[in-house]
Design a protein around this nucleic acid. Structure first.
Lengths: 186, 186
DNA sequence: TCTGAAAATCTAGTCTG
DNA sequence: CAGACTAGATTTTCAGA
């Protein structure tokens, strides 16, 4: 066996060079990921259209989506699979009319809570509390609740008052609820 | 032909009686419809389970639902069809991660609006406004908005200030969002 | 409850920018 | 070379008997 030292060195250098380039590209990627618009890959036009359609009707078939956006069914399926696995699509949910359960009113309740009171458990267990956010400012939490009638709402408020003082506004009109998420406007 | 006045009168009375009873029952029905839990037929246990499953996963097949609640696929299909046609199920929607569109923050904006300013159109056209409710009290409207960054949020608020004065709270934590609707608790 | 027609999804293998 | 397409195989879905 013969050793060719010179060629080996060149090869080694080349390998190192390649490695450095790859490393730099990687760092740029990471920096982008941290500084830019989140960890998500950019959504192209097709992705956006797919997401728009699935937000409108989650049960639409991949073939039908393909027909509407001029893409083949396998392409659509592949994209949807990617969107699901990267958590862009978080799930598919039926939208149920609260009236069907006898809920005749909706209210927004703001809860000004003392530090350290654990209302989170209560909130997740109470069927009537549909949304709950912790926010900046005076009101520690804002929630949207369903109630069958005024008495029911009163009972809910009483329960919440254990955690702090509340302020309730009854919903008169719902202009939009759960509008489809789409690209930010200018 | 022979006239039996007495029997005819009795028959007439009977008919009137029946009519009155029917009328009363009808009125009771109507009263119930107005006073009780809305115009919706009562949901039995199976319906409730079906709704729970479809809220969890809108793409679940009827057969799979049947398997989980011990009901045949045709029964499930029939029930779902009924729930859809009576508007108990209003639709099926994909739940999209706002981060994927670059939205890095959510805010609750309260808008105290002067009477008669038509913000409804603006609200429905602005992609960033996801929910918007008219409520009782000082704040005429409460909305949930998405923003890519603080500057973006500022631009939104500026636009909204055309309609009245606003008060903004930035969402720090989302405890629950769009919890499945289910029967009211005791 | 069972069964068959229709549809939806998956799997290749191929092609193009 | 990633991503799109066609076509065929396979599985699912749903509705009527």
């Amino acid at each position: 066996m013969v050793f060719h030292t010179i060629p080996t060195e060149t090869a080694l250098l080349k390998t190192i060079q390649k490695g450095i380039i790859r490393l730099c590209l990687g760092l740029i990627e990471i920096e982008r990921g941290l500084a830019m618009e989140s960890k998500f890959a950019k959504l192209d036009n097709y992705d956006q259209k797919i997401l728009a359609l699935l937000q409108q009707d989650a049960r639409m078939s991949h073939a039908e989506i393909g027909r509407q956006i001029h893409l083949s069914q396998p392409s659509v399926s592949e994209r949807i699979k990617r969107l699901e696995s990267t958590n862009v699509i978080r799930g598919y949910h039926a939208d149920i009319n609260p009236d069907a359960f006898g809920y005749q009113m909706t209210a927004m309740i703001r809860l000004s809570t003392q530090q350290g009171r654990p209302y989170a458990d209560f909130v997740s267990q109470q069927a009537e509390i549909i949304d709950c956010y912790t926010v900046t400012g005076e009101d520690g939490a804002v929630m949207r609740v369903l109630a069958t009638d005024v008495a029911h709402l009163q009972r809910l408020i009483d329960k919440l008052n254990r955690f702090g003082s509340t302020s309730t506004a009854i919903v008169l009109t719902t202009h939009v609820s759960g509008k489809a998420v789409s690209m930010p406007q200018a």
